[in-house]
């Protein structure tokens, strides 16, 4: 096999993926991989292709070329979003996308992984004690224990983001895609979100897209820098920040708080 050795250990592997929006290459022959139980942060200026990267992995956008492999051998290219969810990839959207008219508990209950999510099993389904215990535990993890029966629409912005992360975790994904989780959060909420993601990384592989460099420094082990649809640098935060090209295209434009 001509594959690189690290491919054997990766949970997600993108091989030469190109996404073309009417001539604009959102991703340009991108090769990218993430290991099992890794917390990877992807940064890059606006239009670098960060969100498109997540869209390709979760099946929302179809690549014009290249392939996406999940786990050892699961080909994702050409699969529908709902099939990919069932394989074990969860997605947290940039703007909180929760069910505002349901309670926090109901939000989590709907998201819980179940053997069937068809109309009739769902119509007749009853929660088991084990399922309720999982939801309780999840409420603890995301810090919303006191809000179980609050209407989700009346939560604060930060709490909504945590709720959505909680909903994604309950699908039991082996890979978690998280798009700008701390945008619009207070400093304290940002810090708590960082801790939450780090604790989750013990069980799941996570890809986080982020703009906020302070937050990146808090959580990142390895950072990937995207620019114009390709990876231009990958490594520790220090290595990335020291890289001349990164400074030029990304850090140079955005003042980094020290």
């Amino acid at each position: 096999m001509a594959e690189p050795s690290s491919f054997q250990n990766s949970i997600i592997y993108l091989d030469g993926v190109t996404v073309d929006y009417d001539g604009f290459k959102a991703l340009n022959h991108l090769t990218f991989m993430v290991d099992y139980k890794e917390l990877r942060v992807v940064i890059g200026p606006n239009g670098a292709g960060k969100t498109t990267l997540l869209d390709v992995i979760c099946g929302k956008t179809k690549p014009a070329a290249g392939r996406v492999v999940f786990g050892q051998d699961k080909e994702l290219t050409g699969k529908h979003a709902d099939e990919i969810v069932k394989l074990g990839i969860g997605r947290k959207f940039q703007a909180p996308s929760i069910y505002g008219n349901l309670t926090v508990w109901e939000n989590l209950d709907l998201s819980l992984k179940r053997s069937s999510k068809g109309v009739f099993p769902t119509l007749f389904g009853k929660s088991t004690a084990e399922e309720r215990a999982r939801i309780e535990e999840n409420l603890e993890t995301i810090g919303l224990k006191d809000y179980a029966h609050t209407r989700a629409g009346s939560l604060s912005h930060g709490q909504k983001q945590w709720l959505e992360i909680g909903m994604v975790i309950l699908q039991d994904p082996s890979l978690l895609l998280v798009d700008e989780p701390v945008a619009g959060m207070t400093d304290k909420e940002t810090e708590q979100t960082g801790q939450l993601l780090q604790s989750l990384a013990e069980k799941h592989a996570i890809i986080v897209i982020e703009h906020d460099m302070e937050f990146v420094r808090q959580i990142a082990r390895i950072v990937t820098v995207l620019h114009e649809g390709t990876v231009i640098c990958e490594g520790t935060v220090e290595k990335v920040q020291a890289d001349a090209r990164v400074r030029e295209i990304y850090l140079g434009r955005q003042k980094v708080a020290h």
């Binding site: 979760c58 959207f93 998201s111 999510k117 769902t122």
Partner: peptide, 22 residues
């Protein structure tokens, strides 16, 4: 029923419903 809550969920955020596996 849980299916009834899925109906409300469809109204609130159809995208999330898809990504919750329904």
């Amino acid at each position: 029923s849980r299916a009834g809550r899925v109906l409300v969920a469809v109204r609130d955020s159809e995208k999330r419903v898809v990504f919750s596996g329904y």
